[in-house]
């Protein structure tokens, strides 16, 4: 069965548990998400809300104690959850590549950068020196000075931001259909961050790939992405075009999140806004809405009944969804 072909990735009803000493921790619950061809989709949400778990499912490299309890993940028309390991392996790094939050998880500490960059081109028929040249070019493209001589160095000899740029260079070498990036600019200074954003935009339009981009930097999401997905404690609570969601957020969590952005606070303060309370225990979920315990707008029904997903804008081409009782009227 082939799903809507204009989506590179189409996730339906995805739920993932982690087995822990206190029972199963429900890290993702009933997640629906589409990534249209050629679009850049951003994901934001509280630390621990399941963003990296979502990615681990898309690339099918999950923790040993993780279990998919429901759902499908269609990539270019095929379900990744039932795909053979060999096929998955050939997809990864070719049709789909990834930049992790921690660059050292992609880089091998005991091999030189040059060896690693040449090795990942093993499918390519080019000569070794051509591959080295290509690697040096990629490094130059992500702003590493002296690329040819730095190929001989080991990962620990680069700064944190340089390691991150190297892992971006390696992910781009394959020209993938989907690039997944888990906080790729966290370790970069603002000028480089802007440079990487421009580079991703350029790549996106030149090879027409889609990008799934995770970041806590709301300004970067606003600048780079077409769509944004807001997650809270394992669920998607709001999603839609970036301009619309950031300009008129509907979910109380999204509203609070945007208020907490220190960039939006003009006056200097030593007491930054936060969201009162704690994320619920994912091993013992509340009956009603997942945000109830911290919501400033909750009503009686929120405690008892799970809200459904609603379209905020009826009939508009660019859909904006929110999962909150307040919007069900």
């Amino acid at each position: 069965m082939s799903k809507a072909t204009d989506n590179v990735l189409s996730i339906r009803n995805l739920s993932i548990d982690y087995a822990t000493q206190e029972g199963s921790l429900k890290a993702l619950r009933n997640v629906d998400l589409d990534i249209p061809k050629g679009q850049i989709v951003g994901v934001v949400g509280e630390s621990g809300c399941g963003k990296s778990t979502l990615i681990s499912s898309i690339i099918q490299l999950m923790a040993n104690n993780a279990k998919t309890t429901s759902g499908t993940v269609f990539f270019e028309g095929e379900d990744l959850l039932t795909m053979s390991p060999t096929k998955l392996k050939s997809l990864r790094g070719q049709r789909m590549s990834i930049v992790f939050q921690d660059p050292m998880s992609t880089l091998n500490p005991v091999l030189t950068i040059g060896k690693q960059m040449v090795d990942i081109q093993y499918r390519d028929k080019r000569s070794k020196s051509q591959k080295r040249q290509r690697s040096a070019d990629m490094l130059a493209q992500v702003g590493i000075p002296d690329p040819a001589s730095r190929l001989n160095q080991y990962p620990h000899e680069f700064s944190g931001g340089m390691q991150q740029r190297i892992s971006i260079a390696m992910a781009l070498q394959a020209q993938p259909a989907l690039l997944i990036a888990d906080e790729p600019t966290t370790a970069l200074d603002a000028t480089l961050e802007v440079q990487i954003i421009d580079m991703l935009k350029e790549l996106q339009s030149s090879i027409g790939c889609s990008i799934l981009f995770i970041s806590h930097h709301l300004g970067v999401i606003a600048e780079l992405c077409n769509q944004v997905v807001v997650m809270y404690a394992g669920e998607i609570v709001e999603q839609g075009p970036v301009s619309r969601v950031f300009k008129s957020p509907k979910h109380p969590y999204t509203q609070k999140l945007l208020e907490c952005d220190p960039a939006s606070i003009a006056k200097k303060t030593r007491n930054l806004p936060t969201i009162e309370g704690e994320i619920p225990n994912l091993s013992d979920l509340p009956a009603g809405c997942i945000f109830t315990s911290r919501c400033h707008k909750k009503t009686a029904q929120c405690e008892e009944l799970k809200p459904k997903r609603h379209a905020v804008t009826q009939g508009a081409t660019e859909k904006h969804f929110v999962t909150c009782h307040l919007e069900s009227l």
Binding site: T186, H216, L257, C260, D261, R270, T274, I275
Partner: peptide, 20 residues
């Protein structure tokens, strides 16, 4: 060294308020 990298803005606020 980068005490709040990788934190959402609300948790980031908590850590910074704590340090303050």
């Amino acid at each position: 060294d980068e005490p709040t990298a990788g934190l959402d803005v609300s948790v980031q606020g908590e850590i910074l308020n704590l340090l303050n």
